[in-house]
Design a protein around this nucleic acid. Structure first.
Lengths: 217, 217, 217, 217
DNA sequence: AATGAATGAGCCTTCATTCAT
DNA sequence: GATGAATGAAGGCTCATTCAT
């Protein structure tokens, strides 16, 4: 009968996780303000008071959702690592592919990107967390690839600008998805399309970088 | 006593416009849900019942704001027109410059872009209107430029993809502004920076387009 | 038809007053925390949102109730004034009588005293207001009477102590009423009893003051 | 295993007492409604369900607190007894001193008086208990002293009135403490002040009783 | 026996909307 | 036509209480 303690702990953890998942969905769908604690609890199959019990209040739950999202993403997509043995062109293609995969990541975690998008429009404390834990590491990885392609140091002024030119082409399909779908209703985002898209962005970017190359290294 | 009727009508029109301006600001700042009718009416110096009186309800006001925004923008930025006499490289640069200008458009109409951004995250009927009236015309203009640069027909599959690659670099600084400011706190968006940015994007894009050029067509 | 403006103003004022009266009763009966805005609005025949509309929130209403109470009391009991032509013994009797009248003041204002009693047990900002506006003026009036009876200056140390001895006998029947009623269930507080009580307290106090008289003036 | 049962029983009794002490404090500080079961259990170092487990519900705990308070007070202050060998003047002084001591009783039991004060404003069943167990015995003791001083029978009408006049001067400093502190911020209630106060009240009362003395009876 | 996760009623407050004037 | 007092639904949050363990 001593076993019931871990059982209870597990049950509590389960309720907590269900709340986090439900909150992720609802916050992504409706935004922080429009999301109601009631709906979150209903979707999580929990009582109306569950949010306050487990997280204190709606705002703390919101922050916790981002922490949870980041943790889940780390589990699903082990950190992109610079593989020094690959040529930088291949590394760029790998980076672009991976970023698109994350963005169009379907399934039970599809709200992660939407939440981030909402933070862009109306930043809260959560954005600082995202930038520090997720965006900056990815960004620095890209800088190294770009610097190598340009034949310059990572600190060079051209690096961030060119990085933005690359990244922007990827996140565009996340941020402007609603517009893209209206302009090209037949556009899909299945795995095949994603591969083609990665191909296109890599090709465009590698060529785009050329005029910025250092004359001499 | 009948003489004051036109005066009253003018006053009413003024109240209407003040409501639209105030609503634009407040909707942009807070989003549809968080914006309160009270604040809009206060900023417009109008009665709390003014919104319902002039527009029926909050939602109809929201749609009306976009119509008003589009109309105002047409007045301020006469439609970008393809100037067939310029070489396509110059036309691309002009397009990019103009788009950045619109996006970072300061002044009393600075809420137009923010409102559009909000529509990306949470599309409403307003987005259909924006796409039809604003984005599609601009998009088609860009397609023509790109098609000419690629030496292919406007209907070619490469055209929209390459267009997205160009446009994405511009709107990135709008959509991801909050992130950019956190990654590079010293980045400003004054006129000089905007010109340099247009220069960079044009250079990157012209080079990026090269490998997509039709060998012969 | 221009007359409707004052009519509306009057109606609003009436709702406000009904809310204040209802709030006074409910706060007195239940205390600040236990009192519910719902009950206050119901008793006032107003909507649940009326309190927030007229007073901002529950706390501001609470403070306003005290201001209202003080104003009402001033209307009903014109300020006790030292009538220098009466001998101090008569003045003391008049003071005690008036204080008892106030305390046992029946009718639609019977909650005033109860509210004050609650402030004794759990002081809020309202008590500072009461002391400044109501208690201190009365207190200073009594000091003058006592000083004259003792044949000393108002600043003398004996004055406040003896004043407390007098006042305490009056307010006792307010503060400890619940106990008094349990110890002597047949005790009533009608006008006749109040007169007898005033008689008793005056007699007791005048005699009690004697040993504190200044030997020489 | 059976051997730990008494140990457990002792532990349970200790938890019960800690709950009573904590409840006394919290009820005194916040009042019945504002006091939360959570805080009581936390202060007692007990589980949140402890109150319901040990006392049934919050209200039963409240009543139990008074029973506990009375029992504790009996232990600390052995019943004031009429010492027939002392002259009544000394007895009155002793009574007043003892009452003031109880009222300003500092230390870990300082909430007893506060709780009683709360019962004055909003009597519950607890007040009946207090009156029967605590106030009536003290009251009857005072009546005997007063009757002796007045030279009349205990049943005489003057006795309760004069008793109230004496008692009121003592409890005043408890009930109106918040006001006294605002009118005379420099007033303290240390032992020395209490002795002086007892002196004053005795002097005032003995003199105040004089005109009520039976001429002959 | 004792725990603490979970419950649901109820509180204060906000807000778009209505309606008498 | 235009106002603003009033409405009532709904939201976040608190709390005593319960119940499976």
């Amino acid at each position: 009968m001593k076993l019931n303690v871990p059982a209870i702990a597990a049950e509590q953890a389960q309720t907590r996780q269900q709340l986090l998942e439900a909150a992720g969905e609802v916050f992504a769908e409706r935004g922080f303000r429009s999301a109601t604690v009631r709906e979150i609890c209903q979707r999580a199959g929990a009582n109306i008071a569950a949010v306050n019990y487990h997280f204190g209040d709606k705002e703390k739950l919101y922050l916790e959702v981002f922490r949870y999202s980041q943790q889940k993403e780390l589990e699903r997509f082990p950190q992109l690592r610079k593989s020094a043995d690959l040529p930088p062109e291949k590394q760029l293609h790998a980076f672009i592919s991976a970023l698109l995969q994350r963005i169009f990541n379907k399934g039970d975690a599809s709200w992660h990107g939407l939440l981030m998008l909402r933070e862009m429009t109306e930043p809260t404390a959560a954005l600082d967390f995202i930038v520090a834990e997720k965006i900056r590491p990815m960004s620095e990885h890209l800088w190294e690839i770009i610097a190598e392609l340009l034949g310059c140091r990572v600190e060079d002024d051209r690096v961030p600008r060119c990085s933005f030119s690359v990244v922007s082409q990827c996140v565009f399909y996340c941020h402007s998805r609603a517009v893209v779908e209206r302009l090209h209703p037949d556009q899909t985002f299945d795995q095949k399309s994603l591969d083609e898209l990665a191909e296109h962005i890599t090709k465009f970017s590698l060529a785009g970088l050329k005029p910025f190359r250092a004359v001499k290294k």
